[in-house]
Amino acid sequence: MTVILEAVKLSRSFRLPRTGFGKERAMRLALVDVDLQVNQGARLGIVGESGSGKTTLARLLLGLDTPTAGFVKFRNEPLVGQDMYQFRRDVQVVFQDPRSSLNPRMSVENIIREPLECLNVPGDQTARIDEVLTAVGLSLDLRHRFAHELSGGQRQRVAIARALAPHPKVLIADEPVSALDVLVRDEILGLLAGLTDNLGLTLILISHDLSVIARLCEDVVVMQNGVIAERGKTADVFQFPQHEFTKKLIAAVPRLPSNS
């Protein structure tokens, strides 16, 4: 299997605000020496509590943030120096809250057209917009609507359609269903599973909820305090968790009375 996206000794630290006059600004190590390889076509889950560094890792992998040490490799080449237009076309993202990630002053059509335009994607734009709207199961009549006129599930579908528009190879989804109702959550997870299978996408799914990871991902990485606590096949990690923190996460998933 070929490695498509790779993190090499990736670290990121932030300077915290001053706590008092004349005091030093403390450093916060958000990510420490993280090595990660993502195979082409794989579905990888990244799980951890808030503050464990999941989103920092995602931002670095997307090239939205600069690491303090280490680097990101895409197709075996360091990210720095690559054609960023090509990289952005190949690696796309879906954020947690579609309410804040969709421009409220743009229609659905223009939201999806935006990446096609600013990333110089060749081909007929209108045809591509129809194509991705159909792929995420939205009616073409919605193209002139604005984000506030859509339900939460529809909004997240628009966010996914926008990400799919430039024909990406890798999709990074950062807590894509945390803001959604259970039934809608199930639909969106089903959609993501179908899309990755049909389009041969590589999926990196970030969540604090192990049951979401269990639905979609063959591989899982458990993060805690900026380091990878445990990694492996989802089935192995869930069945024989080695790390205390993984055990705690597994015990925390709400279960039905009949199965617990």
Partner: peptide
């Protein structure tokens, strides 16, 4: 409710919860 939900919407809620619970249980029990 779990034993014999009569309403369609309740049934759907239960089915969704069970689907997610089962896929998780499959992993944890191996």
């Amino acid at each position: 409710l779990f034993a014999n939900a009569t309403n369609d919407y309740s049934k759907m809620l239960i089915r969704t919860a069970q689907l997610s619970d089962d896929s998780f249980a499959r992993f944890t029990t191996g």
